[in-house]
Design a protein around this nucleic acid. Structure first.
Lengths: 148, 148
DNA sequence: TACAATTCCTATCACAGTAGTATGTTTTTA
DNA sequence: TAAAAACATACTACTGTGATAGGAATTGTA
């Protein structure tokens, strides 16, 4: 079970898309605001498209839009699209002994951990975060040259 | 934030130590029961010793014992000894924008995730797991040749 | 119709971490 | 004295992460 920069970048981009209007946002635009390597972000957006989280609009003035209402996209969906399923990578079926989890008291803890993570991630939607973000932007807008 | 085989192996070994008596258990013994590569386990036990989770007894008939009562060792302590601190690896101070977390709505989610993980891990102790394990062993003892 | 903006596709790469192996040495008990 | 054990150190194969590179296909707009 791991959370990497893929989730961080992807979520930042999606919150930005959700906080904006209905017009598509280009990868370049998004990458500039959050200082995400543009070509890397392209790959993440491709993964999010494959997972059905976003739709793309090709050509000039194109970009990405959410495939569903922001309130219906959980952070869990985003993370799983980018990192694979949130599940205990350990204590899996491969291990002869842990196959019969009746033998392994520790296994229960790993299960509880991934349940807890899924719980947190599925309880926040892009709509929630977009709202928060709009509020933050209003109070402390991001500038190209930070006030220092 | 990651959980790897280090935690899995280490916790299995410690539960075994806790479920046993007061006499030291050798790395070899532990590695055989749970099919953990012996030399790898040695390294994990060394890390656990450095972190003050176990004490070692050198020489023949030596091995490892818990450094404190099992009820006072949380799974969190074990995991952090083996994997490093459980904290959101992302949205850290390094990033110019996320330094002022006032700009980043997504960051709050990562914080909640690691809080949830820490919560689960710190709510289970080696004494709990050792109890579970003893019960499991009584019902379905681990055999070298699984019944298949 | 040309051009620029954009997604899309594929390949490559450096680096770090994981998981594990190897080869001893020191210490201690029996 | 011999065996069992921790301790120390180095090495290796492999994988995933976080990119970069170069172009091809698509599409709005001047």
């Amino acid at each position: 079970m791991r959370l990497t920069a893929r989730s961080e970048y992807g979520l930042l981009a999606l919150v930005e898309i959700a906080a904006g209007g209905d017009s598509p946002r280009s990868a370049r635009e998004l990458s500039e605001r959050w200082e995400i390597p543009a070509k890397f972000l392209e790959q993440l957006l491709a993964a999010l498209k494959r997972a059905g989280v976003v739709r793309s609009v090709r050509g000039a003035r194109g970009g990405y839009v959410l495939a569903s209402p922001a309130a219906e996209i959980s952070v869990l969906a985003v993370v799983e699209a980018l990192e694979g399923p949130i599940a205990p990578s350990m204590c899996a079926r491969e291990s002869a002994l842990c196959a019969q989890s009746a033998h392994c008291a520790a296994g229960a803890v790993w299960g509880r951990v991934s349940d807890a993570v899924r719980d947190v991630l599925s309880s926040a939607t892009l709509a929630d975060l977009a709202g928060d973000q709009r509020r933050l932007d209003a109070v402390a807008p991001v500038t190209k040259e930070p006030a220092q």
